[in-house]
Design a binder for these strands. Sequence first.
DNA 1: TTGTTCATGAGAACCATTATCCACAGCAGA
DNA 2: TCTGCTGTGGATAATGGTTCTCATGAACAA
Lengths: 140, 140
Amino acid sequence: MTEPVSAELPGRRTTRQRSALVALLDELDGFRSAQDLHALLRERGDSVGLATVYRALQALVDDGQLDVLRGSDGEAAYRRCSPVHHHHLVCRSCGRTVEVTDPPVERWASKMAAEHGFSEVQHQVEVFGTCAECTAAARS
Amino acid sequence: MTEPVSAELPGRRTTRQRSALVALLDELDGFRSAQDLHALLRERGDSVGLATVYRALQALVDDGQLDVLRGSDGEAAYRRCSPVHHHHLVCRSCGRTVEVTDPPVERWASKMAAEHGFSEVQHQVEVFGTCAECTAAARS
DNA sequence: TTGTTCATGAGAACCATTATCCACAGCAGA
DNA sequence: TCTGCTGTGGATAATGGTTCTCATGAACAA
């Protein structure tokens, strides 16, 4: 009751492992699986346990600092994202991601849900394609 | 070369197990997991192996007769769907599903992708909420 | 009916994710 | 500085959905 409730991350400590993970995510610009991130950390010498990677990712998601996406194989992929509501345009081939926003889509989702009596609505809009570079590379 | 290539399901046999699965899917109107479907088949006496359920579901998806959805836990859910392109409005609580279409969203996705140089675009739009009945039930 | 070939089913294998256990680190108060 | 509390890390086991293996059985064409 006496703790500063307004603090962003109450009772969350800053450790070498979490810093390394956040730094890595800042460098990457596409969605990466937890397994990938764990392997990348090991490669660069920042040895971190797999369970720790999962815990840290989950914590960051809870804090709204990461976005999660489920691929067609069910594996979760993570990415550092802006805190405002947005959707993604993801390259199937290289994983590069563009954040996009579109108020009309938001309105459409709310309207459609209301028309059918649905409440507490969330929507999920992701666009997958092949980016210009990968298309060019595939042609060579 | 001599087979009827135009046949809907070339080289796919009709078996008791597949018929039972399709019949079950026709009766249900929400997304169900493979595990659920397997349990339901057992309950009604149509004993079918779990592996068979997965194989049959995969085959139906390949033939475009089923839609797949990945829940937040990564579990796949299946549903009998109309063959034309559409999206879903899914009740988080009871799983009931409404199929919706919206050409503007389709156009928006294509336009957005083109602006960023993406090609071979697919999009995924799902809206989750709580349907009127479940909202009412929760209030009681 | 017969032969070929695909489908089935039980269980093992697989793999991402989560839980468990215990040692350790950071911080607060004595 | 010492001590105790609590969150964290790491290794590993457990979990659970999905896929694979392979011997057996069923569908279909001739």
